[in-house]
Amino acid sequence: MDLLQPAILLQLAIGGLLAGALYALLASGLNLVFGVMRVINLAHGELMIAGAFLAWLLYSLLGLHPLLALPVAMVVLYILGFYLQRLLIERIVGRDELTSLLVTYGLSIILMNVGLLVFSADFRAVPALQGAVYLEDLDLVLSKPRAVAGIVSIVLTAGVYWFLKHSRTGKAIRAVSEHAEVAMICGIDVTRIRMVTFGLAAAMAGAAGVMLTTIYSFSPETGADFVLKCFAIIVIGGMGNFVGALLGGLLLGLAEAFVSGFLSTQWAEAVAYLLLVLVLILRPAGLLGKADAA
């Protein structure tokens, strides 16, 4: 089989890891929200697409480079998430998980369809950062947009991880995640921490959206595909487990690349769903998590 050459395997692996990093950025935000407030945010993909459209607007109206649009989108999405939490999500924290599932489902439908009304179902892309770097001796191609998106994702995910581990707010977030009532007794403003958390997750989704624009074409309906992949990732990595989401993302990226390479692109699109269902049935708490789902 002529596909089993080291250069080709390496090429597939690099592509998979870079795509996986983007997944990880998206999924760890989703998982953060779940960890802190037990809310599964089905609108996470739409927040990502909001970031993507923001980058697209900034590029096509002002000619702003996506890397410059990145901080703008993150700030805007942070504020959006912050107030979404305050207006909507806060009302469902503590109610059963199905309620949160239904409310965020409703939110995602609204966001997607408002997106369709405003931007139509056309596919868009931001033609910045195009081209590739060639490593001639290794016979390798490093696509610029993918490399940049992968690196940005890794830096951001690591940054959020560091923030959770070492900053005061981050510690408070972890405290709320572990036990909201105890955290409250310790004087933590739990409501505010939840707002910060949701804002942070939204900002991560927005960042993923900005990076997405340089690699793929997207439409308001693209978010749904990604959020399903994110579920697969956090189910694989363990729900509420930040590091699990990171590993799950990289794993899914690799799996898709190799399935695409050795089977077909169409099968690669199904990998996430198959993994999702399989892991849920065989190991409901995820590969890293403790059993509490069944």
Partner: peptide, 8 residues
């Protein structure tokens, strides 16, 4: 599976 896991 319970609740959200079943739904997903």
């Amino acid at each position: 599976l319970h609740g959200p896991y079943f739904a997903i």
